[in-house]
Design a protein around this nucleic acid. Structure first.
Lengths: 334, 334
DNA sequence: CTCTCTTAGCTAATCGTTTAGCTGTCTCTT
DNA sequence: AAGAGACAGCTAAACGATTAGCTAAGAGAG
C-alpha cells in the first residue's frame, strides 16, 4: 500500500501538500494539484484511516452488540443499524453477546480497545452488573430495547407493559377469561414488563390467570414448544395464550399443530413482536409489533448526537409504543 | 482515556516496560510488574488498538459485505461469521450492498481505507465489473455464495446445479411431469445454476417444463407471491413447483393459500435453501438445505490463512453440497 | 528602491503504540 | 580482583497521517 510519503516523493512535493490536496483543506496551485492527483492515481493511494484516526482520535466505527444474532428480531435491528450507521458516515462493528453477561463484558472492553466512537448495546446482564462508572467518560453508549435502572445512560425502549396490555385486552374483548401466558425471562424488563401488562389488563377486569397457566419460555423457540405442549396438553387448559415474543410464538404454533389442536378454533394465540418468516405462517398471528427500524434509527441519532456534540446533556430515555396488528390467530371464545 | 504514558508515569517505569507487561512479551520483575498492573487497574487503561495497528499494520478487523441483510439467508451468514471472526480473534465490520453494484464499489474502497485485514464478499455485480487487479495486492478477499469467473480469488460456493437437480428429481420420483419453477435472477450463478439443475434433471428423463411454467421471482418474497399467483391461477398450471430460494417459498405458500389451493394435495412445492421462521411453516417445506454455517466457517478459515500465512497459494474454490430435507409439501401426483 | 503584506508550500511535532538497541548492574569465572 | 556475560529496564525511532508555524518569494505602496 502506498503511503502519503510515496505520493509526495512521486509528485515532488511535501506530505503537507498531498494532505491539502487529498482533503481539499488548503489552496494548492493547479500545477502541483495536478501532479499530486496523478501520483495518487498511479500509486492507487488511499489514505490510511488507521493513521488518520490515531491523530484525530476518531475511528469512524460504531459498535452494535446484540443479545442474540440468531433471533430474527435482532437481525432486523442489525439491518436497520447498518443502514443508519452508513448514512451517518460511520461503519458498523457487530458483536453478539449470545445473552451471556461475561461475553458482553469482553465485548465492551473490546469496543473500548478498538476505539469505537460509540456503541449501541442491547444489555444482557442483570442490572447489578452495570455500574455507572462503566459508562461515564468512556465510549458513548445508547442502550436499545432493554433498560438497566438509572445508569445515567441514553436508552431507547418499547413500552412492554403496554404491549402486554394491548394483546391481553384484545383477547379479553373476544370474551376470553382463562388466559395463559408464555413469558420471557422475568429478570429482563422485556420479560417482566409484558407479563405485568398482561396481569394488569386482567386485574382491571377482576381476573387473574390460573396457577400453572403462566410459564416461562425463555424467549426461545424450543423451550416455548415444550412448555406449550405441556401447558396445552392438560385438561384444564386456557382458551387463549399470550406469548411474549415472536420466536416463541412459532414454537407455540408448532406445539398447537402437533397436539392436534386448531388455531384459532380451539385456542387463540396473541403475541408480542414478530419475526421475518412469520408472514408465511398460517394463520397469521395477532400480535403487537415493535417499530424496530424507528427505534434503531432513534438510538443511532442519539448516539451520533453524543459523539459529535460532546455536550453533556442529561441522559434521555425514549419509549416507543407497540401497535396491535390483528391477524387470524384469535377467535371469540366458544 | 489513559495512555501508556500515563500508566508509565503512574508506575514510575518506562513505556517499554508497560508494553512488556501488558503484552507479556519480555520478563519484568515481579515488583515492577505489580506496580504496572496496579496502575493499569487504577487508570482503567486499555491499549489503543488504533495506535497498535498503525505500528503493526494490522487492524484486527474483518469485513463482511452481504448482498441483502434483510434476507434471513444472509442473516444466518452474519451470525456464523460473527462467531467465526470472534473465535479467530478479529472483530466483524458489517456492510450491506443491498444487491447494488455501485454501493458494493463504495464498500470495497471503504474496506481498503479502514485497513481491514481481510474481507468476505457476497458479490452482487455483473462479472464484468470485477477486474483481477481489484483483488491483487489489496485486502485479501474470499467470495462467498456466488462466484465471478476466474478472478483468481478464493471462493466458497454451493453446488447450485445439484440443488436444482435433487429437488427436481424428488418431484419426478413422485410422478410429477408438469413441473414449473420460480427462479432467481439468472445473471447470478445461484439463479442460473439452480434452474440449470432443474432443466437437466427433467431432460435426463426426456422432459422439459411447459412454456410459461418457468418464471423469475427475483429472490424476493413479494415478487414470488405475485408470480406464483399468476402462474398457479392459470388453468394449465403445473402439478409441482421448484422454488429457487426460501424467502420466495414463503411468498409462494402465501399465494397458494390465497388462491384456495392446498399444499401438497393440489400442488407440490420444493425449494432450495431455507429461512429461519420456516420451521413454523405448515406444511413443512421439502427443500435442499445449504450448510450455511460450514460454508461461512470455511470462508473465514481460508481468509485467515491468507491473512496470516501471506503465502501466495493459488486461489481455491471450495464447493459445498446441498442436502435434500424432506418435509410435507410434496405428494405423489394424482 | 525599499519596506510591508500576503500566501504557497515546506518542516517538524504530534497522536499511542511497539521494539531495536543501548546502558548499567550484578554474578560468575579464572 | 578484574574481565566477561547475562539481563532488567530504558531511550528513541518508527508506523502514516494532520497541522501549527515558518520561510521565502512576489506584489503593492510610499
Amino acid at each position: 500500500m502506498a503511503t502519503i510519503k510515496d505520493v509526495a516523493r512521486a509528485a515532488g512535493v511535501s506530505t503537507a501538500t498531498v494532505s491539502a490536496v487529498v482533503n481539499d483543506t488548503a489552496y494548492v496551485s493547479p500545477e502541483l494539484r495536478g501532479r499530486v492527483l496523478a501520483a495518487v492515481r498511479d500509486l492507487r493511494y488511499a489514505p490510511s484511516l488507521v493513521a488518520r484516526n490515531l491523530r484525530s482520535g476518531r475511528s469512524q466505527l460504531i459498535a452494535l452488540a446484540v443479545a442474540d444474532l440468531a433471533n430474527p428480531f435482532y437481525a432486523r435491528i442489525v439491518t436497520a443499524a447498518e443502514a443508519a450507521v452508513a448514512a451517518w458516515g460511520y461503519s458498523l462493528v457487530l458483536f453478539n453477546s449470545d445473552e451471556k453477561p461475561d461475553i458482553e463484558k469482553r465485548i465492551l472492553s473490546r469496543i473500548r480497545t478498538l476505539g469505537c466512537d460509540g456503541s449501541v448495546l442491547v444489555p444482557v446482564g442483570p442490572e447489578s452488573q452495570y455500574q455507572r462508572r462503566d459508562f461515564e467518560g468512556g465510549v458513548p453508549v445508547v442502550l436499545l430495547g432493554r433498560s438497566i435502572g438509572d445508569a445515567g445512560v441514553d436508552t431507547v425502549t418499547i413500552d412492554n407493559v403496554s404491549a402486554g396490555k394491548q394483546a391481553t385486552n384484545y383477547l379479553l374483548d373476544l370474551g376470553h377469561r382463562e388466559i395463559g401466558s408464555i413469558t420471557g425471562p422475568t429478570q429482563l424488563t422485556t420479560g417482566s414488563g409484558r407479563l405485568q401488562g398482561m396481569l394488569e389488563a386482567m386485574a382491571a377486569r377482576g381476573l387473574a390467570p390460573k396457577t400453572g397457566h403462566v410459564r416461562s419460555g425463555e424467549f426461545r423457540e424450543d423451550t416455548a414448544y415444550s412448555v406449550a405442549r405441556d401447558l396445552l396438553g392438560q385438561l384444564a387448559r386456557p382458551t387463549a395464550l399470550y406469548v411474549a415474543n415472536g420466536v416463541m410464538a412459532i414454537g407455540v404454533m408448532r406445539a398447537v399443530a402437533d397436539l392436534g389442536l386448531r388455531c384459532p378454533e380451539d385456542i387463540s394465540i396473541a403475541s408480542t413482536d414478530t419475526v421475518a418468516g412469520a408472514g408465511g405462517l398460517k394463520p397469521r398471528l395477532t400480535r403487537t409489533e415493535h417499530p424496530v427500524a424507528d427505534m434503531t434509527n432513534e438510538a443511532l441519532r442519539m448516539l451520533v448526537d453524543r459523539i459529535e456534540d460532546k455536550v453533556t446533556l442529561p441522559a434521555r430515555n425514549v419509549v416507543f409504543q407497540p401497535a396491535l396488528v390483528v391477524g387470524e390467530s384469535c377467535a371469540p371464545v366458544r
